[in-house]
Deep mutational scan, measured.
Amino acid sequence: WLKDDEATHCRQCEKEFSISRRKHHCRNCGHIFCNTCSSNELALPSYPKPVRVCDSCHTL
């Protein structure tokens, strides 16, 4: 799980985070992405409801 202060850019699109481009953790891989690159939800065994995942984890 990557800490918020360790990420300054989206792991996928590499756009810089700002007040309007917020950080979101993928609940599967733990990396930090922008909203555009992590707008999917997936049912994971460790969560009772579908949770936010990055595009890469969603296509696995």
Rank of each mutant, 00 (worst) to 15 (best):
I19D: 11
H25Q: 14
V51Y: 03
C34L: 01
H9W: 03
V51P: 04
H25D: 08
A7G: 10
A43P: 12
H9L: 06
P50F: 07
E14R: 04
L44G: 08
Q12L: 05
I19T: 13
A43H: 10
C37G: 03
Q12P: 00
F17C: 01
C13I: 00
C34V: 03
C29I: 00
T59E: 12
A43F: 04
C26Q: 00
C26G: 01
I19P: 11
S46G: 15
Q12N: 09
T36M: 15
E14Q: 09
N40L: 04
P50Q: 07
N28H: 13
C34Y: 02
C34W: 01
F33N: 03
K49L: 05
T36C: 15
E41M: 09
C13W: 01
N28S: 10
T36Y: 14
H9D: 05
S56E: 15
E41W: 04
K49D: 12
D5V: 05
C37D: 04
L44T: 09
V51Q: 08
N28T: 05
C37M: 03
W1I: 14
K15C: 07
D5H: 04
T36W: 14
C57A: 01
L2S: 08
L42T: 10
Y47K: 06
L44Y: 06
K15A: 03
E16F: 06
C10Q: 02
N40Y: 00
D55Y: 05
D5N: 12
S46T: 11
C34N: 01
E16V: 06
H58P: 02
T59A: 15
K15R: 11
T59Q: 15
L2V: 11
N40C: 00
I19L: 11
C57M: 02
R21K: 08
D4M: 14
C54S: 01
L2F: 10
D4K: 10
H31W: 11
R11Q: 13
E16N: 11
C54Y: 01
F33I: 08
I19C: 00
S46R: 14
R22Q: 09
C57K: 02
S46A: 14
S39E: 13
C37L: 01
T36N: 15
L60P: 04
L42Q: 15
L44W: 04
S38E: 00
W1Y: 15
T36R: 15
L42R: 15
E16T: 05
H24T: 08
I32V: 13
I32N: 11
R27F: 14
N35Y: 13
I19N: 12
E6Y: 07
P48Y: 02
C13E: 01
E6S: 08
A7Y: 10
R27Q: 14
H25W: 14
V51M: 06
L2D: 12
G30S: 03
R22F: 07
H25I: 09
T8W: 09
F17V: 02
L42F: 13
I19E: 15
S46V: 06
K15P: 00
T36A: 15
N40E: 08
H31E: 06
T59Y: 08
C29H: 00
R27M: 12
S38F: 02
C26V: 00
E14M: 07
T8H: 12
P50H: 05
C37T: 02
L44P: 05
Y47M: 09
W1T: 06
G30F: 00
H9Y: 05
V51G: 03
K3Y: 03
S46F: 12
V51F: 03
C26M: 01
L60E: 12
T36K: 15
L42K: 11
S38C: 11
Q12C: 13
T36E: 15
C13S: 00
L44M: 10
Y47V: 11
C10M: 00
K49E: 10
K15N: 10
P45Y: 04
P48T: 05
D4E: 08
C26T: 01
W1D: 15
H31F: 12
H25E: 11
L2Q: 11
N35K: 14
G30H: 04
C57N: 00
H24M: 08
Q12D: 11
K15S: 10
H58C: 04
K3C: 00
S18D: 13
T36F: 15
C13K: 00
W1E: 09
K49M: 05
C37Y: 02
C37S: 03
E16H: 10
C10P: 01
T59V: 14
C26R: 01
G30M: 06
A43S: 08
K15E: 12
R11L: 14
N35Q: 14
S20I: 12
H24P: 00
N35A: 15
L60W: 04
V51W: 03
L2G: 10
P48F: 01
R22K: 08
C26A: 02
C26S: 02
F17N: 00
N40P: 04
L2C: 05
C57E: 01
N35T: 15
L42G: 11
R22I: 09
I19H: 11
C13M: 00
C34K: 03
S20R: 10
D5C: 08
V51S: 05
R21V: 11
E6K: 14
K3T: 08
F17D: 03
V51R: 03
S18K: 10
C37F: 02
N40M: 11
E16A: 06
Q12S: 04
S39H: 04
I19Q: 13
G30K: 00
C29L: 00
C34P: 02
S56R: 15
L44E: 04
K23D: 05
H24V: 08
Q12M: 06
S18C: 12
S38I: 04
K49W: 05
K15G: 10
K3F: 00
S20Y: 07
R21N: 01
V51C: 00
E41P: 04
H9T: 07
R27S: 12
K49Y: 05
D55T: 02
E14K: 03
E6T: 11
D4L: 05
R11P: 11
L44C: 04
N35M: 14
Y47G: 11
K15L: 08
C34T: 02
I32A: 09
L60M: 07
E14N: 03
E14D: 10
C57S: 01
K3M: 04
K15V: 05
I32W: 15
S39K: 15
